[in-house]
Design a protein around this nucleic acid. Structure first.
Lengths: 319, 319
DNA sequence: TTGTACGCGTTATCAG
DNA sequence: CTGATAACGCGTACAA
């Protein structure tokens, strides 16, 4: 390349950095050679120099095909792409081993920052990232034993909002469907579910708590079982979009015009249109991604070690 | 690192590659130092050597928040992660400029392969990638003037399938809603729409063709306008999931039990549940992603320059 | 204004 | 079995 332009590599470098203190003729010469060869600076070579950033942000989510995580990824990109950073994205599928492998690999690729929706309680790999000087942001889920910025949906208040509505409507036998309580968001949403009952003095029937469905198919089965109970629930609180889909499928399966009331966490297209009495706890995953992205940028742009930040995004009830 | 282990960098390298031809004691020494320092090979430094791969696959899609592209991304990852490759993902938002910027950046990062859902007719940046020796795969949309592997949904046959069904049911005034025909998939789906009419000898009323809605909000407005026509359509063919959502919203807005029949391209959760007579042209975007990923792998694993491959994925009608 | 020397972290090659 | 050397592409520091 330098040869084609007839100058030294150093001059090429200078031109590509803005051409300060380079004779205009040589600038032109370099630009010609660049155009002729389709030359492009090797960003990887560039970044091996200590102190140089790669402009790579690692993003580890549990499932891109779930539109909520897709929206999250989009939000992160919107923010960090302004500064020219790119996204290295991996899907853990709720597997801690896979999450660890991804993080480990990302560290080796010298990412500038890491955004994770953690699959479990394991922190070792994230601590390792931090000790490599990589700022870590936890998105959607918090983790004990890790000093990192966190951005969450206000799950507890959201679940509370939904269940309070059901109780206000006169329901007292309310079922819960969600993922395992060990999954951070699910645990918190169940907590909000219980808190609303407690505050209203309504007892929780533990037989109506179905926690452990990670996809719509399992939720459908669980909901069908609830419908078979002698003492059916009169309302259902579903803790996430996958479970809501399963619940609605089971209601449709049941055929008879079930008058079961449903409140579901997470919005989705056409939620207002399903032929059941469904309300939604809505929130904004893209905004969550944007905040995660700007948390990373803030850490990168300030040398000072401010204490970890915690942001909880509001929810709203769509009747 | 080499210093901590008390060996040469070369020995470290050998151990990290499997430790062949290294005395066991030294292997242990290196492993200790690795554990102590949390040492990790710098993949970027590693890849500056000519002929070395980065293990990065560039993926440029139009919108991650659309679950179809999320699923596509997932499919790519499923395939290439087996070989240890990672995804560098960017969203073009249907902007050619942004697509070009992303591709250009990705080339600078020495990606091994590039998978693109092209936003427009521009090929220059993709030709540049190819001339850098990077295999390019077009996903979902084909591009004239580019010799690259392509994986598509069989849009024409799919649209035909849907419209044939409507005609078989006796409809002759069928509206079309979709994106601009200049968008590859939309053009093909409109083509299938017309072909089905032609074959059945049913004339197309051009006033019922609404091509240009890129999101649900615009589709909703367009559908509302169709409902206001003196001679209403009796059925609607919607060319993608965004338009289908808008169509259904407009039908719901209309309130009165509209007996308009709808067929929509692209499946979505709860499609069978909406309170309208809706059928779906279903296909598998994750599989599309998997095929795109394996096309890249095939190119990387074979030195020979086989002619470009074209795969069209089947669709099926869900009544 | 331009070029030389050196170093970043890694590995192929070859010498020992 | 092990290490020294060189080279990858780029940028800082310095020299000319």
């Amino acid at each position: 390349m330098a040869a084609t332009a007839g100058v030294s590599p150093m001059t090429v470098s200078r031109v590509l950095h803005g051409g300060l203190n380079v004779r205009p003729e040589k600038v032109a010469l370099v630009h010609e050679a660049v155009a002729a060869l389709g030359y492009r600076r090797n960003e990887n070579a560039r970044s091996i120099r200590p102190g140089q950033r790669t402009g790579l942000i690692g993003v580890v989510i549990t499932n891109v095909a779930n539109p909520y995580y897709g929206a999250l990824q989009l939000g992160v990109e919107q923010v960090v792409s302004k500064g020219g950073s790119r996204l290295l994205v991996g899907t853990s599928g709720e597997s801690i081993e896979r999450e660890q492998a991804l993080v480990s690999d990302f560290i080796g690729r010298q990412i500038d920052g890491l955004i994770v929706v953690p699959a479990g309680g394991e922190t070792s790999h994230l601590l390792e990232a931090q000790s490599s000087g990589i700022p870590v942001v936890l998105a959607s889920r918090r983790l004990a034993g890790l000093d990192a910025d966190v951005v969450l949906v206000d799950d507890i208040a959201g679940a509370r909002l939904g269940v309070e509505q059901l109780i206000a409507e006169g329901h007292s036998r309310i079922a819960y469907l969600g993922n395992l309580p060990s999954v951070f968001t699910s645990g918190r949403r169940l907590e909000g579910f219980r808190a609303a009952h407690r505050d209203a003095g309504v007892p929780v029937d533990e037989r109506l708590i179905c926690a452990g469905q990670n996809d719509a198919a399992h939720a459908r089965v669980a909901m069908a079982a609830l419908l078979d109970l002698a003492e059916r629930p009169t309302a259902v609180f579903s803790a996430n979009n996958r479970n809501t889909v399963g619940v609605l499928q089971a209601l449709a399966d049941a055929g008879e015009q079930t008058d079961i009331r449903v409140v579901g966490f997470d919005n989705f297209d056409l939620a207002q249109m399903v032929p059941f009495r469904l309300s939604i706890i809505d929130h904004d995953p893209t905004e969550l991604g944007r905040i995660a992205g700007s948390m990373i940028e803030d850490r990168l742009n300030s040398r000072s070690a401010a204490p970890p930040r915690l942001v909880e995004l509001p929810t709203r009830l769509i009747l």
